[in-house]
């Protein structure tokens, strides 16, 4: 199924993860997945299947609305189960949240600076910002603009660019295509692909747009009602009749 056995050690490993909201509604019922170094893995599934909850459990962003009730998260061999978000960011795991959470009252420049919050090597921040402008030239044009006034696509670019400023080892991308016009969806995916190649960053990607995601990913998991029901290489998943019917609209690529 997966080609992980012949690959490197897993950078991220999730074992029988369970999570609940406010200790009442259990959303995850034992999720198992892993992401190897340098890989791009897609987590696919319908609305409410538990994709976002999985990412939030891993990144510590679940705190405040829910909690992990069972299982483990390992980052780079270290047991990071239940760590708050700031400890995960300083360990190189950055979560780009669904819904483009930029700082609406700060300028684009200040947003990018904040992305580098956990960095110790402050002298390299300006250079890295130039790197981000390489991927997203639009951001450079709008450097002084308050982020709240950017368009949806620009905010998504800013959210990804800001995450890059942390020099992450692994990026969790939640629905980068949500609410964007088709042209922009393609643009964002192209840039993510380019980033992946050039920055040597590992990716865990959550998407409803399964077709797009599987073009980008090496492997994928399908999550349904809080458990992984299917996993395999991107190619295997593209050919899988279950996935094709439900998530790819039955159209052959």
């Amino acid at each position: 199924m997966s080609r992980s056995t012949e690959q490197n050690r897993p950078l991220l490993q999730v074992q029988s993860l369970e999570a609940s909201y406010q200790n009442v509604i259990r959303v995850l019922h034992g999720v198992d997945l892993h992401v190897d170094e340098g890989e791009c893995v897609a987590l696919l599934g319908a609305n409410g299947a538990g994709k976002t909850t999985t990412l939030k459990s891993i990144s510590g962003m679940l705190e405040g609305e829910g909690s992990i009730t069972g299982g483990n998260v390992f980052l780079d061999g270290e047991d990071t189960t239940g760590y708050p978000a700031h400890l995960m960011v300083s360990r190189g795991l950055v979560h780009v949240l669904e819904g483009r959470f930029v700082f609406p009252d700060l300028s684009v420049y200040e947003n990018l600076l904040m992305g580098a919050y956990t960095r110790k090597d402050r002298d390299k921040i300006e250079t890295d910002m130039e790197g981000v402008f390489g991927y997203f030239p639009r951001l450079k044009e709008r450097l002084k603009v308050q982020a709240g006034y950017l368009s949806g696509g620009e905010q998504q670019m800013l959210a990804i660019g800001r995450a890059l400023m942390a020099r992450p080892k692994i990026l969790l991308l939640d629905e980068p295509s949500m609410g964007l016009a088709p042209v922009l969806v393609r643009e964002v995916f192209n840039i993510v692909n380019q980033i992946r190649k050039e920055e040597n960053v590992t990716l865990l990607l959550v998407e409803q747009n399964a077709r797009m995601a599987l073009k980008l990913a090496d492997r994928g998991y399908l999550i349904e009602t809080g458990t992984i029901v299917l996993h395999g290489t991107a190619e295997e998943l593209r050919e899988d009749p279950r996935l094709q019917q439900v998530y790819l609209g039955g159209i052959h690529n």
Partner: peptide, 19 residues
């Protein structure tokens, strides 16, 4: 800047690693 950022969006501040 960090304080302005946290005031602007707590969620975003947590996601970039602000305690």
């Amino acid at each position: 800047l960090v304080m302005r950022a946290a005031a602007s969006s707590q969620v975003a501040a947590r996601s970039v690693g602000v305690p």
